[in-house]
Write a protein that binds this DNA or RNA. Structure first.
Lengths: 230, 230
DNA sequence: AGGCGCTTGTGAAGACGTGCACAAATCGCG
DNA sequence: CGCGATTTGTGCACGTCTTCACAAGCGCCT
C-alpha cells in the first residue's frame, strides 16, 4: 500500500515522543486517515496488534520497514544536477529514511566534477561503471523533459527497475519497471482547480450554471490530504 | 479531475508540434492513460469533440485552462527558502505554466534579503503585508516539518485557501482549505516496496510464503504511472 | 476469578473508478 | 446525394477502495 510510508513516519514521531503503544485511532489521526482503513491496512501485513491495548510501536516500525524493503539501505542514482537535482542531492531526508545517493550524474560537462554534499558529479556516460560497482535498483530523473526518456532508457539498460521521474513528461519503459512521477506544476494546477471551483461556488450559491462555470455534481472533489501519486 | 493537468501538458506539446486536432486515442497515449477514460473525463467538462475527427487542440487547451482556473495568473507565496525552497524559487516551470511567485518568505534572518531569481527573501512576519498588497490564494510550504504547522496557520490566517506542503508531516487546517502533500522520501519508499516485492517474487516463484515475505494476493500492486497525489 | 471497558479484526454494504463495447454522429469521397 | 470510414460519447458490468458497525479478544480492577 502507498499509505505505509505515511504510517511509518507517524510511528517514528510517536517513538521519539516516548510512546510504546498506539491505538489505531491515535495512529490514524497522526497519519491523517480513517482508523478503520488503517486497521485493515495493518491486518493485511499480518501484523497483530493487541485488542484492548493497541499496537506496539517498535514492533510495527520493524514490520513496516521490512515490508517496504527498508531493512537494506538502498542505493539511488540521481540524474540531472540542475536546479531541482541540486536540491535533491542536498536533501537529508533521503539519507535519514533509508536511502543512500550512490552517484550524481549529469550530461553537462560544466557540472561534472562539482562537489555537492560530499559527492562529485560524474558524467552520465559513466552510468554503466557506477552500476557495475554496486547494485542500483532506483534511479531519480531530475533532468529537463527533453532528456528524460533518453535517461530512462539508459537507466533501464543498466538494470534499474524503479524510477522516480521529476520531468514533466510520460516515460515509456518495459514491463517490470516501475515509474512514479512527481510534477510540481501539476500539483499547483490541481490546487488552482480547487480555487476556481471554490470561487465559482461562492459566486453561484445555487446550482444551475453551465458545465463550464460549475462542474456537475458527479465531479465532486474530495478532500485530498494524501500521499502523492497514489 | 487530477488528470486534467496531464492532458493539458500533452496538448501543449501537440500544439507546438503543429497538430490542430487530436483523437482521443492519440491524446490518451501522449498522456499515458486509457482512451475511454480520457473521453469520459473530457465529456465531464462539457467539452465537445467532433465525431469522426477528434478534438480541436486549441479549443481544448482553452477549455481545460478555464476549468483549472488558469485564465488568471495566480499568485503564490513560497515559505521556506532552504534547500528545496531555493530550488523551487528558481524553477521556471511555475512561471511557464500560469503561476507567479509573489513572495519568498523565511523565518531565518540570515536568509532575509537574499535575492533569488529576481525576488528578495522577506521575513515570514511580513506575510500579512504581502497578502494585503495582492490576493494570494496558494501557499507553498518548504520548511522543516517542525515549522510547517505554524506556517500553515499563518497562511490560513491571511486568507490562503490552498496549500502545497513539502514538509513531511500532516497539516491540520480548517474546512474549506485544500492541502496537497508532496513527500519525496515517501515516493522513494513506495519504489522500495515495489523493489522488495519484485525481489520476493523472483526468489519465490510460487506463492506460499508468510505474509511477511510475500504479501497476500489481495494486495496486488497496480502499475502506477500517474500524477502524484490524487 | 469474574466482570467491565477498551481495542482490534472483519463482514457487509455502498461509493467510486475503470474499461469494454457499441450506438450515434460527422466528414470525405465518389 | 448517399455510403462508408472514423471517432466521440456513454450504458453497463466489474473490480477495488472505503466506511460503518459489531463480534471477538485482551487486560485491568475489584
Amino acid at each position: 500500500m502507498a499509505r505505509l510510508p505515511e504510517y511509518l513516519r507517524a510511528l517514528h514521531n510517536l517513538a521519539e515522543t516516548g510512546h510504546e503503544t498506539v491505538s489505531s485511532e491515535g495512529l490514524a489521526n497522526a497519519a491523517g486517515v480513517n482508523s478503520a482503513k488503517l486497521r485493515k491496512d495493518l491486518s493485511q501485513l499480518g501484523s497483530y496488534g493487541t485488542r484492548g491495548v493497541g499496537y506496539d510501536v517498535g514492533l510495527l516500525i520493524d514490520q513496516i520497514e521490512y515490508v517496504l524493503g527498508l531493512t537494506q539501505r538502498r542505493a539511488v542514482v540521481l540524474v540531472g544536477v540542475g536546479n531541482l537535482g541540486h536540491a535533491l542531492a542536498g536533501y537529508d531526508g533521503f539519507a535519514s529514511r533509508g536511502f543512500r545517493i550512490a552517484a550524481l550524474l549529469d550530461a553537462d560537462q560544466e557540472l561534472v566534477g562539482e562537489e555537492i554534499n560530499g559527492l562529485v558529479v560524474q558524467h552520465i556516460d559513466d552510468l554503466p561503471q557506477v552500476a557495475a560497482e554496486e547494485s542500483i535498483a532506483i534511479g531519480v530523473i531530475a533532468t529537463p523533459a527533453a532528456a528524460a526518456q533518453r535517461v530512462a532508457d539508459q537507466l533501464v539498460a543498466v538494470g534499474v527497475t524503479s524510477i522516480l521521474n521529476f520531468a514533466p513528461c510520460v516515460l515509456s519503459v518495459p514491463e517490470g519497471v516501475d515509474v512514479r512521477k512527481v510534477d510540481l506544476a501539476i500539483e499547483l494546477q490541481i490546487l488552482s482547480f480547487h480555487e476556481h471551483r471554490k470561487a465559482s461556488l461562492t459566486a453561484l450559491p445555487a446550482a444551475g450554471g453551465s458545465a463550464l462555470t460549475a462542474l456537475p455534481g458527479g465531479l465532486a472533489v474530495t478532500e485530498s490530504q494524501e500521499a502523492i501519486g497514489t
